[in-house]
């Protein structure tokens, strides 16, 4: 590693460039890296050193975020292969998938009327989670065999699922808050 600021996140954390990451190891390396660069270690240094320390710490935090995130990690892997997501306005064209998503939305909207909405949300969340696991497998297959278009399509679907999962969690949270 020559320059931390231009190294990819996997190399920075000294782990293999792969969708599968050892999160325990990542977390451990994160602490080690922070001990080396965090601004608190440079509280007595000049403004320049403090600025550079902040840049590095920000980078390490960003790297941790990306490596831990199931969707962003996939996007990052594709970016390393030269896939540009920044101008990506297209969405998945898989009609069956979109239909499933719409059905799930409708279910989500009417969940409050159910007898036990929290249990309902738990099971929906588990469904989405397993769909995400399946989609992550699809991504890994496509990515490792160099089918970047397929991998990209999997990432789009992962994005959908991730968002749905967040919405389910949010809704569960607000229902829980009402009961407490």
């Amino acid at each position: 590693m020559t320059d931390a600021l231009s190294t990819n996140y996997f190399d920075l954390f000294e782990i293999p460039v792969s969708y599968d990451v050892d999160l325990v190891r990542v977390q451990h390396r994160y602490r080690e890296l922070q001990k080396a660069v965090h601004p608190d270690k440079y509280a007595n240094a000049g403004a320049q050193e403090r600025r550079i320390s902040m840049q590095h710490t920000s980078l390490i935090n960003q790297a941790l975020h990306t490596l831990k995130h199931p969707v962003e990690r996939a996007m990052y892997l594709l970016q390393l292969k030269g896939v540009d997501f920044t101008m990506d306005n297209e969405t998945t064209m898989d009609a069956a998938f979109l239909m499933e998503q719409m059905e799930m939305r409708e279910k989500l909207e009417s969940v409050r009327e159910k007898d036990d909405p929290l249990a309902e949300l738990d099971s929906m969340s588990a469904d989405v989670k397993s769909n995400m696991d399946v989609m992550a497998e699809v991504f890994k297959q496509a990515y490792t065999s160099g089918e970047l278009d397929d991998a990209r399509e999997a990432v789009r679907k992962l994005q959908f699922l991730y968002k749905a999962k967040q919405e389910i969690t949010e809704l569960a949270a607000s229902i829980e808050d009402e009961i407490i």
């Binding site: 931390a4 000294e14 451990h28 080690e32 080396a36 320049q48 050193e49 550079i52 590095h56």
Partner: peptide
Amino acid sequence: VARRMNTSIRKAMKGHSIGEYAKE
């Protein structure tokens, strides 16, 4: 300054064996 920052990152990462992470 930049070189030092990189060196300290390298130092921080040096000498870790897989075993260390096992019980984390």
